[in-house]
């Protein structure tokens, strides 16, 4: 009895708590990025015996500029990176109906609706807040899913929008991109310089530290990104059922995804935004953007 009650509690994580948690996490993540950037810049400057001050300023300016630009254009970048086109209201009536139904159920503004090419049943939501949100589904969603299943999938995306997951995932994607660009720059710079330079032994230690940092930083950030992304998928599944009040819809959609063998190629940065894993199941769950479909179905069937 007591156990059942605690389970119930877990399921009903208040949306509001999740929203404020996401907002604080977003801020912390941004601070974390700036610290990483500056630390990387500092160590790199020492390794190459460059002017530390100048490098720090460049690193900070670069990161502010990069984060600002990508954040401002996140939805356009995400949509164009998968080749999405705006859906037609009359031609894609069923899709519009599903999105409108879920917008009504979730009491959120109607998102813009896009369709991307692809034989895999998949979808994602993006935008900075519910007012500027976008939902994008693959063509396969329209061909392979019935009304209830489509509503389940859209409800899942709507729940990401309601929870401000879209903003958070966007920031994470931006950050992951930035750090990998930065360490790439460093690693390339290193090979370029290593032949001509004669370094002191003090520099060598910093050089090694910089090398290790440059290799490890993107991996750590990536793992953080993946872990966060998996957790929120369960939340969004629960949110979808809250909107549709019909778990079988989402369960059947997941089952259909399980039985199809259509991997999809999307850029790494946007993969965590998707409804289900875009690539084939990886061996370790740690490297997956989504929990396994079996686990998601099980969690839904327990509701």
């Amino acid at each position: 009895m007591a156990k059942e009650k605690s389970k119930e509690k877990e399921k009903h994580v208040d949306f509001r708590d999740q929203i404020s948690a996401n907002k604080t996490r977003s801020v912390f993540l941004l601070i974390f990025v700036f610290v990483v950037f500056i630390a990387l810049g500092y160590v790199i400057a020492l390794a190459f015996t460059l002017d530390v001050f100048a490098i720090l300023i460049i690193a900070t300016l670069f990161s502010i500029f990069y984060v600002w630009i990508t954040y401002a254009f996140c939805d356009k970048i995400a949509l164009s990176s998968v080749g999405a086109k705006e859906a037609d209201k009359t031609r894609h009536r069923a899709l519009y109906d599903a999105v409108e139904n879920m917008a009504i159920a979730s009491q959120l503004p109607m998102p813009r609706v896009y369709i991307m090419p692809g034989n895999q049943i998949n979808a994602f939501a993006t935008g900075k807040d519910p007012k500027s949100s976008v939902i994008c589904v693959t063509e396969a969603c329209l061909q392979k899913l019935n009304k209830q299943e489509l509503e389940g999938v859209i409800g899942h995306e709507m729940s990401h929008i309601a929870n401000y997951d879209i903003r958070f995932v966007t920031i994470v994607a931006v950050v992951v991109g930035a750090i990998s660009i930065f360490s790439q720059m460093f690693l390339r710079g290193m090979f370029y310089r290593s032949s001509s330079d004669d370094r002191g032994s003090g520099n060598l230690i910093f050089f090694l530290v910089a090398l290790v940092l440059a290799i490890i930083a993107p991996i750590i950030v990536k793992l953080v990104q993946l872990a966060i992304s998996r957790k929120r998928e369960y939340m969004a599944d629960a949110g979808s059922v809250e909107f549709t009040r019909y778990p079988p819809g989402l369960i059947n959609a997941l089952k259909k995804i399980k039985h199809e063998h259509e991997p999809m190629k999307v850029p790494d940065a946007v993969a965590p935004m998707f409804f289900s894993d875009t690539t084939k199941q990886r061996i370790l769950e740690m490297f997956q953007t989504h929990p396994s479909i079996e686990k998601r179905i099980k969690a839904l069937e327990a509701m």
Binding site: R93, D97, E100, N101, M102, I104, A105, Q107, F243
Partner: peptide
Amino acid sequence: QTELSSIEDKIAYARQAYNDS
């Protein structure tokens, strides 16, 4: 007929949202 049945759906969801709120 399609329009009316889609409205029927929306009314159902709107009622649900009303009760939820």
